[in-house]
């Protein structure tokens, strides 16, 4: 299909194995496993603290996950810069407000996409905090450690996601 044009992307197996090596390197050098969702707790804690410090000080969850910059917070910032660098270097940076697959199904309304994405993000993060991890913390780090809870979480992530996409896109049709 793409024999004429050179595919600007990497083979996902190669990139995945390299990501596995980055994880191994991180564990060896700094003892840190990948994770991202706790950073959202720390960040919102920092934001809330600037508005209502007493409230944050009284919440148990912010005592557990302190509103501060830590290894993982910098890791998440790093993801932004790394992805940005890769997109710019490969010429695959593209400003897009609505993903192609979404547009084919739900049309061109930017507002509609924004609302669903926002609500989806809110729901996803509540779930991730209850499950104590997201696809990076449970999926990659927990999976690589063969953690029972992480493997269960991963199955549940996909189950919930498959149910939701069935509702949104319907079943069966390949488009």
């Amino acid at each position: 299909m793409q024999s004429e044009k050179k595919n600007p992307y990497w083979n996902p197996y190669v990139a995945g194995m390299l990501a596995g090596c980055v994880l191994i390197g991180s564990v060896a050098v700094s003892g840190k496993f990948f994770g991202t969702s706790t950073t959202f707790v720390r960040s919102v804690g920092m934001i809330e603290k600037s508005i209502s410090p007493d409230h944050v000080a009284n919440l148990d969850y912010f005592k557990k996950e302190k509103p501060m910059v830590d290894w993982q917070w910098m890791f998440v910032i790093g993801i932004f810069f790394g992805a940005s660098l890769a997109a710019k270097m490969s010429g695959t940076y593209a400003l897009q407000l609505i993903p192609d697959m979404w547009q084919r199904r739900f049309g061109q309304s930017i507002i509609k996409r924004a609302i669903v994405a926002f609500v989806g993000g809110t729901i996803a993060m509540i779930g991730a905090r209850l499950a104590d991890g997201c696809p990076s913390g449970h999926g990659l780090s927990g999976g690589a450690q063969l953690s029972v809870g992480s493997l269960i979480a991963l199955v549940c992530f996909f189950t919930g996601g498959i149910i939701m996409t069935r509702i949104l896109f319907g079943g069966g049709t390949r488009s």
Binding site: G127, P135, I152, F157, G160
Partner: peptide
């Protein structure tokens, strides 16, 4: 928690790490 995450993921189409990365690539 995992099921709720999945439902939100299905709506958003990105997970926490990839949503940040998605913004970075435009």
């Amino acid at each position: 928690g995992g099921l709720v995450f999945g439902i939100g993921w299905g709506l958003l189409g990105y997970c926490p790490g990839t949503s940040i990365g998605a913004v970075a690539e435009g």
